[in-house]
């Protein structure tokens, strides 16, 4: 792809998909921006007057807003830490030659195939339920009082559930990265007198840096918009204790039929996501260069 002719041809060939994608993104974005400056509530039909930034000021001063921001960040960070640390440990374990490797790998990957709503329901009813849940039984067996996870530590419970879903993804990416490590490098380090811990620290971890970056970037995109798990388990409560930004927008717009407010929330979420993205690329983007 280096001659002028081939570059022109390449541009021509990719233009339909680029135009389609642009339209696909720009039209909804434009409509959201437009709605966000209207007073537009489905419960109050009539004309939808232009109100400027009124919706924004309502959304940003909403009592739940600051809580939602912090919850969103805690959720993203918590899940990232758990999945990356856990993913590295699991990948190291699965990389060892062992009996039944194939089956174990499939088992580890399985949670990824379960729908978020279903896995959240399973966690809520089978594990975390304070009366019938497995944890409740475990606590009772140990002579402790059962702990009502979803009421006492709602955000931590949701972080646990989401991390459980994303752990296989991180494990899979990190495992393939680990398998691409040249075994002669490890042997050279062994000859150089590196202990297993230093081999991990100085050889494996730098090798995994790029894969870890990929995991962080991809997961952050999805974790900023966690919704189903919250809806199914805590409904954002108690209070705003487990409301993240996505859920707040849902509460503001759909539950109150307020299109204008929801759109304003959406725009705020887009801006925040971009701030996070820029921040991430600044911090770890250099790992993706060759």
């Amino acid at each position: 792809m280096s001659t002028k002719a081939s570059r022109a041809a390449a541009r021509l060939m990719i233009s339909p998909s680029v135009i389609l994608l642009l339209g696909w993104m720009l039209i909804p974005l434009g409509m959201t921006l437009y709605f966000s400056v209207l007073r537009y509530n489905l419960l109050m039909p009539g004309d939808n007057p232009f109100v400027g930034f009124e919706n924004y000021s309502y959304f940003l001063t909403d009592p739940g807003f600051t809580a939602a921001i912090w919850n969103t960040l805690a959720l993203v960070l918590g899940v990232l830490v758990i999945t990356i640390v856990g993913g590295i440990l699991l990948a190291l374990l699965l990389d060892q030659p062992m009996w039944g490797q194939g089956i174990v790998r499939i088992l580890v990957i399985a949670p990824f195939f379960v729908m978020p709503t279903v896995s959240a329901l399973v966690w809520k009813n089978m594990f975390l339920n304070p009366v019938n849940g497995l944890f409740a039984h475990l606590f009772k067996a140990l002579g402790l009082t059962p702990y009502d996870f979803l009421a006492q530590a709602p955000l931590a419970s949701i972080i646990g559930i989401v991390a459980w879903q994303w752990l296989p993804f991180a494990t899979l990416i990190l495992l393939t990265a680990l398998q691409s490590l040249d075994s002669e490098q490890l042997e050279a380090a062994e000859m150089d007198g590196a202990s297993p811990l230093s081999r991990f620290r100085f050889i494996m971890l730098p090798h995994l840096a790029r894969a870890i970056t990929v995991v962080i970037l991809i997961q952050t995109i999805f974790l900023l918009s966690v919704f189903a798990e919250i809806l199914v388990t805590t409904n954002g409560g108690p209070g705003y204790a487990s409301t993240n930004l996505t859920y707040l927008i849902y509460v503001q717009s759909l539950l109150q039929y307020d299109v204008g407010m929801g759109s304003a929330g959406g725009v705020v979420a887009i801006i925040l996501a971009n701030i996070v993205a820029i921040f991430l690329m600044r911090m770890i983007g250099k790992n993706l260069e060759t």
Binding site: D182, A188, F202
Partner: peptide, 12 residues
């Protein structure tokens, strides 16, 4: 030992 693939540590 000097390996056939040199086995240098690429990030150092």
């Amino acid at each position: 030992m000097v390996f056939q693939s040199y086995a240098l540590y690429p990030h150092m």
